[in-house]
């Protein structure tokens, strides 16, 4: 059950390049990454692509297939017609190193700007007690495999490179939400989410959620709840007044 498929793949170094045509054998059950590997082994040994696990677990093989951000290892060839031309390009939001490999250092830089988990100083390892229901929300976000496709698809930076400075991207806004909801985290994250990491740039158009291979409800469960928490802190006079009167932190 094999056939010849037509591929157009972006080739080139440092952003310069062109779409190159290939005709390549496809067998039953294969995914796009298999085809790229076949091209490497037979027609283009220096075709650059990142991958590791081939099982959707590591988030290395992010690419754009027919214009949509996808994991190459989880995109089955059976989802395309046999005579369809399949276009494979690198992630658009990040600079290209070569072929399908992009420079994703933006993401690592943003990760570093998010203050890390801050537990209270008086709990020692082994003393943590958390109920399952209290960790479940953050656990969902920790499913993230850092494929960076959400950051890639988000129009805030995809279409506006100049926003990269001010905007952490859905992946890391979600990390802020994760930590803000962590039962033991004591750092104050709501003001900084808005002021330093650009939560306000998100217009909740949900592309991040659409592309997430882990099916994390980034917008509904992380970004919007985080926006609401920011409203508590910044824009809701009632909550503000309540806090003044009762002297307790509403978010805790």
């Amino acid at each position: 059950m094999s056939y010849k498929a037509k591929f157009r793949i972006w080739r080139g170094e440092g952003g310069e390049g062109r779409l190159e045509d290939f005709t390549v054998e496809v067998n039953e059950g294969e995914v796009v990454l298999d085809i790229i590997h076949r091209l490497q082994a037979t027609q283009a040994p220096d075709l650059a692509v990142r991958w590791n696990c081939k099982a959707g677990k590591c988030g290395s093989c992010s690419m754009e297939i027919n214009g949509k951000p996808k994991l190459g290892c989880m995109t089955r060839m059976s989802t395309f017609g046999e005579d369809e031309v399949i276009t494979v390009t690198p992630m658009r939001t990040f600079p290209v190193i070569k072929d399908l490999v992009t420079d994703v250092s933006f993401n690592y830089q943003k990760a570093r700007e998010i203050p890390s988990f801050t537990p209270p100083s008086d709990v020692r390892p082994g003393e943590y007690r958390m109920k399952q229901i209290d960790v479940e929300r953050s656990q969902e976000f920790r499913k993230c495999i850092e494929c960076f496709m959400c950051n890639n698809v988000c129009h805030v930076i995809r279409d506006h490179d100049e926003n990269k400075q001010a905007f952490a991207g859905p992946r890391f806004l979600m990390q802020i939400a994760e930590l803000d909801m962590h039962p033991y985290d004591v750092a104050d994250r709501q003001d900084s989410a808005q002021d330093e990491h650009g939560l306000g740039y998100c217009n909740i158009t949900k592309c991040c959620t659409e592309v997430c291979p882990e099916h994390i409800k980034i917008t509904d469960n992380a970004l919007i709840p985080m926006k609401e928490r920011v409203v508590d802190r910044r824009y809701d006079p009632l909550v503000w007044l309540g806090n003044k009167i009762f002297k307790r932190s509403a978010a805790k």
């Binding site: 972006w10 080139g12 170094e13 440092g14 952003g15 310069e16 390049g17 754009e64 027919n66 214009g67 949509k68 369809e84 276009t87 390009t89 690198p90 658009r92 939001t93 990040f94 600079p95 290209v96 190193i97 420079d103 250092s105």
Partner: peptide, 21 residues
């Protein structure tokens, strides 16, 4: 990722607004 060549700070120079089919 240090040691970059100058060209690598550029995105893929694709003209199309989208490649979605």
């Amino acid at each position: 990722t240090t040691a970059e060549s100058p060209a690598r700070r550029q995105r893929a120079q694709l003209k199309a607004r989208t490649l979605r089919t």
